[in-house]
């Protein structure tokens, strides 16, 4: 399909030795990652996401994943 996606892989996560379960590792579409994928230099990624979301557990347990993503402008 003529769509871009973030590549992902499943992972079993431990944080400071504590078992955290199954997660997706995903590419972070920043200016350092995306150009490696598509060989283009990007000037804008617009994304109207409110925040990152992890479901199945309390969001309060997942502060690392609460990332705001407004339009990214890369010069």
């Amino acid at each position: 399909m003529n769509l871009d996606v973030r590549n992902a892989e499943k992972a079993i996560v431990y944080i400071n030795g504590a078992y955290w379960g199954v997660y997706d590792i995903r590419e972070n579409p920043t200016n350092t990652i995306i150009p490696n994928i598509i060989t283009d230099r990007i000037n804008t990624i617009c994304n109207t996401s409110r925040h990152g979301e992890i479901h199945g557990q309390s969001m309060a347990d997942q502060p690392l994943f609460l990332t705001g993503q407004p339009c990214i402008v890369i010069s």
């Binding site: 871009d4 995306i34 283009d40 230099r41 990007i42 990624i45 994304n47 109207t48």
Partner: peptide, 15 residues
């Protein structure tokens, strides 16, 4: 929400 769109700025790029 959750809509992303982009274009490349490399004049030799494919996007």
């Amino acid at each position: 929400y959750n809509t992303g769109w982009w274009r490349g700025m490399d004049s030799t790029g494919t996007h």
